[in-house]
Amino acid sequence: MTRASVLIPIHDKETTLPLAVDTVLRQSVEDVEVLLIGDGVTDGVRRVAGNLVAADRRVRFLDFPKGPFHGERYRHDAIQAADSDAIFYLCDDDLLLPDHVADLLELLEDHDLAQCLNGYLTPAGEVRLFASDLSDPHVAALHLRDDLDYNAISITGTAHTRSAYERVSRWDTTPTGFWPDRWQFRKMLAPGFRAATSARMTALQFPTSSGGRDTWEPQARTDEIVPWHTLVTSPGAQDDIDRRVREGMLRQLIEDREELATLHASLASTREYFTVQLESKETYFGELVAALRAEPAALREELDTLRGHVDRLQEIRAAQEAKIEALRERLRARRG
């Protein structure tokens, strides 16, 4: 049986696709296959895919019409068609180092889901890392929370067993608000699954969403990846990437410490602001409480004054009524 099946979703990247496939076919584990998952491919991509199939029997092309979103549901069909129980993934504009499949196959002997040290390359050639260890239950739990936008899993560089996939729901159109890889792979981070992260970065990612690449023309994307393909296919490539990872870790650590220091200063300023506001509010409410406590006494004094006026008016009224009664007596006496 084929030791590893590498699934590559394809649509319109005809110039980078041959480079990605070439790095799969150069794996130190030779018994691999490549399944190109067409999602409404362009004529150019269909031609390139056909050439790749003709050039190497290990490459197969599944030509599907354009599906919803990124055609995720076709990945299920590809898994069903795969000859291996070890399912790997790669984007059509990313690259694998020679030992990628070997590293993750070793992890998959005792795990359901595995990934290489995850990160990406900036246009300047610097490594940026998604610091994560999927074997850590705390990290796995973070991926499962819907109230956090936390994800350290990419489609490139990730692999899982067929049996693990069959224990979760199949690839299908991703719900709004999620990336396909996070939506699918996090199912294999639930309790009862075993996940792991390799200590080496053996997959190189060049995400369109970073470094302004979303504005690049296809030729610019190709021009960026060609030198990296030359590196990946040259002796000592892994040592070079390991060095870049170490440098990237240090650079990222320094930047993270700077960011934390800035955040700490911002929190301190915010705390000071709210402390002043709280003290001001406490003073205000203290005065308000004192005024409310004093108000009943003032009301009682005013009420006593009003009662005095009422009593005086009643006395005056009684005196007037007495005078009127006296006049009535005089009138009655004269009439009699």
Rank of each mutant, 00 (worst) to 15 (best):
G212N: 05
H229A: 12
P235D: 09
E224Y: 03
G248I: 02
G212R: 01
M249N: 11
Q219T: 10
G211Q: 06
A220L: 10
V232N: 04
D256V: 02
S234I: 12
G211W: 06
S234K: 11
L250V: 12
E247F: 15
T215N: 04
S210C: 08
R221E: 13
G212E: 02
D240Y: 14
P227S: 06
L260V: 05
V226C: 06
V226E: 08
H229M: 04
R243A: 11
G248R: 01
L231H: 13
G211H: 09
W216S: 03
D256G: 00
I225G: 02
T230W: 06
P218E: 02
A237G: 15
L253I: 09
D239Y: 01
I254E: 09
A237H: 15
A220G: 04
R257Y: 01
V226L: 12
L260F: 05
E217K: 12
G212P: 03
L260C: 00
D242S: 01
W228E: 07
S210R: 13
L260K: 08
A237S: 15
D242E: 11
Q219I: 07
D214I: 03
W216A: 06
R257D: 08
D214E: 13
M249A: 11
L260Y: 05
V245R: 00
E217W: 10
T230S: 12
Q252Y: 07
E217M: 13
I225K: 04
S234N: 11
L250G: 02
G236D: 08
I225C: 04
R251D: 09
V245I: 01
A220N: 04
D256A: 12
T222M: 05
V232Y: 09
H229F: 12
R257Q: 09
D223S: 15
G212I: 01
D239I: 01
I225H: 04
V232H: 05
D239V: 11
P227T: 01
D240C: 09
D256W: 05
V245W: 00
E255M: 10
P227G: 03
T233P: 02
G248W: 03
P218W: 04
T233N: 08
V245S: 00
G236A: 08
D214G: 04
I254R: 11
D240W: 07
R251F: 04
T222Q: 15
M249I: 09
P235M: 06
R213D: 00
W228T: 07
E224M: 09
G248F: 00
A237I: 15
E258Y: 00
T230L: 09
Q238F: 08
R257V: 10
R244F: 04
G248C: 02
